[in-house]
Write a protein that binds this DNA or RNA. Sequence first.
RNA 1: GCCCGGGUGGCGAAACGGCAGACGCAGGGGACUUAAAAUCCCCCGCUGGCACCAACCCCAGCAUGCGGGUUCGAGUCCCGCCCCGGGCACCA
Length: 845
Amino acid sequence: MANHRYDPSEIEPRWQARWLEERTFRAEIDPSKPKFYVLDMFPYPSGAGLHVGHPEGYTATDIVARYKRMRGFNVLHPMGWDAFGLPTERAAVREGRHPQEISREYVANFRRQIQRLGFSYDWDREVDTSSPDYYRWTQWIFLRLLEKGLAYEAEVPVNWCPALGTVLANEEVKDGVYVETGDPVEKKQLRQWMLRITAYAERLLTDLEGLDWPESIKEMQRHWIGRSEGAEVRFAVDATGDFFDVFTTRPDTLFGATYCVLAPEHPLVERIVAPDHREEVMAYAAQAAKRSDRERAQEAKEKTGVFTGAYAVNPASGERLPIWIADYVLMGYGTGAIMAVPGHDERDHEFARAMGLQIRQVVDAGGIDVAESAYPGDGPHIHSAFLDGLDNAAAKRAMTEWLEERGLGKGVVRYRLRDWLFSRQRYWGEPIPVIRLPDGTVKPAPEDDLPITLPALDDFRPTAEGDPPLARAREWMRTRDPATGAPALRETNTMPQWAGSCWYYLRFCDARNAGAPWSAEAERYWMPVDLYVGGAEHAVLHLLYARFWHKVLYDCGLVHTVEPFQKLFNQGMILAYSFQGAGGRYYYPSDVEETASGLVSKSTGAPLTTQIDKMSKSRYNVVNPDDVVAEYGADALRLYEMFMGPLEAVKPWTTGGIEGVYRFLQRVYRLAVDERTGGPNPALGDHPVPESLDRLLHRSAMKVEQDIEGMRFNTAISQMMVLSNELQRQERLPRAALEVLLRLLHPFAPHLAEECWSLLGHTEGLSHAPWPTWDAERAREESVTFVVQVDGRLRGKLDIVPDAPRDEVLARAKQDENVARFLEGREVAKEVFVPGRLVNFILKK
RNA sequence: GCCCGGGUGGCGAAACGGCAGACGCAGGGGACUUAAAAUCCCCCGCUGGCACCAACCCCAGCAUGCGGGUUCGAGUCCCGCCCCGGGCACCA
């Protein structure tokens, strides 16, 4: 009988087609309206397609975008593809096809999946980082970096990944393996393009202050930048005339230094090593050089090192200190040499104990024996000549000053951040736009030549000589120096995947501009991004690189804000239950049944255990958005993803959960439509809105609005559920009341809301309909329940108007039978009254 | 080891320092139906008291990882632990 039931598979494609056709979400510069730029971290289209994690963030931004439009904002809400990258190239090699062809397929599939979810993107601004129209400008920005001296070539120790045949950035390597694939990474000296991100370290650090970002992400960036203040101190090598600088954050403990350590790779090692120690020292250095970072990290527990036989002179005390080499000192940080103060540094302490070196106390540790454990804390200095009695901070200042006066050292600031290794030996990336002359000079490619497009190749592997794949394109490589006409060669390295995403948010401002990356007008109007939503996995990589480029562009006068992303929000990952039998074998959730004795497999009857896991193919627990849309529709998927819990929380997907929101959507549909006839709900009419319902409407509008502003979508939805439950109870349903609900619901479930809205006779869509207004006064409950406590324990309740005066409430509270029982025969010492909330009688003991 | 998050019903979760568990899932009972599905209504933290028994009502006690503290009052604030998740990890 109910043959006109809510059918998302019919409703949703219809509205999506209409939005696309009418370009409902097209954004144009309009100085008369306030702008709002809400951005998703654009996806890297892969062969696996969308998973339910993608729409989580996209739904959140879509809700904000649609809400802001209804509030009269001119909203920029774009989507694009981060399409250059290793996985596509690897798929190309595997399948023997061109990466571009594969990329197009992946993009088409992603676009299709995303469009099925009804997001209000302005598709006229779609970008693809692998398209020449786009990467032309990525190359153009690289030339700006080159101009400013921020891009340079250097022979550097790099992270070389043999499995991939390319180098990787520091940020892409952890524990000696590539973070994406787990392939091991080796140290290798190679000539590479570098970006001088360290020149911006201080600004990248201090400008975090003004950003509305999660504190944890800011903290991770601060840590990655790793600013530390200290001093460089010059140590002479006894009797050889050589000297070396050490970096220390504790110049105040200079009198406590009992030995020095050089990194095994330190250039001085070879010169100062004593003849009778040479063999041992060189063997250790060779051994250290051979070991990968991975091994070094794994063996970090035990300290190793050897004595060089040489001595340094402590510039403060004149004391002779033995010089050791040890791999706990890294060539890549500071000066590659340290003064060791085992009394007040844990690592030095450990080393000193292992090697039987002297430990000296120079800071009063309040009874702690530094022979037992290092004391890195604060305290009055001792055995330290002119520093005696000073605390750490004062002693640091005094020592630094003392060193500077004598030319023995100086105060310096160091960063952990290293320059960004920017070249990759890959095909599927932006060619670095430079040319090489036969004499070895390197020049920028002429701007007129941009884009330097990728040559057609059919083999994307490195050459037999180990050159990058672009070296296979002999013809393509050959070019001329524009100044002299002399022959020159193109650079064969390409940019890393991060390049395109460093500025895509700017391109979105003016995506079809053929003469410039963006116009000043568009940038000035749309920037900065007001809300940026994505996963926390980009905390230091993308977000640090993009901030760096943005600051460079700012210095070039090309953007008007110092930071690109004003507010950042990280959505939590969506996990899923997985099911395992004895022996660890995974079972499909559809094969699982709950019985009295526990979970079992329907097909084999094997007992199963369950746990919450990351979604992965091998665990059989991946939820595909296409399947969900097919069964429940996009609106239900959107709503469920938001209803699961706080956006920032990690939360498990449950199949049962989506049923609930689906029922809610059906209920809303039935408020508008009579399922038996397909006509309007007969209860619906231009009825007056009863007082109590009016209050609920105001309360709901207030709650939903505040929750959207605060990104608390789960509680916004529960309020709409409360409202719809109440509307359903109305025998005479006022059309005005339903329309409030539909407008509140529109950002969350746009297809259903539009459908009902149009069934109510509206010809204008909801996308630009005004957001419901509310009045805090009318949102208040007409009566509230006062809680009556005696000695802090609940003894009764009282329904009175919220603003009831103290005396009246207290008097009525005392009349309550149960309250009276507890007050009987006792003396009240104190009466607590919280207006609109509670009274509490405190009895005399 | 260090730095962030987080521990609340059977489950996902709510809760300006003020009725712990809104909203939803699962479960139980009922209505409608020839029946089922769908829909609608009611119940749903634990323990105990009260009535012949049971249920309801009413009442009390215990409950927000553990132990202390502040407060008239603590899931919420403070101190010390335990467990889970994420990040960093010889950075001088």
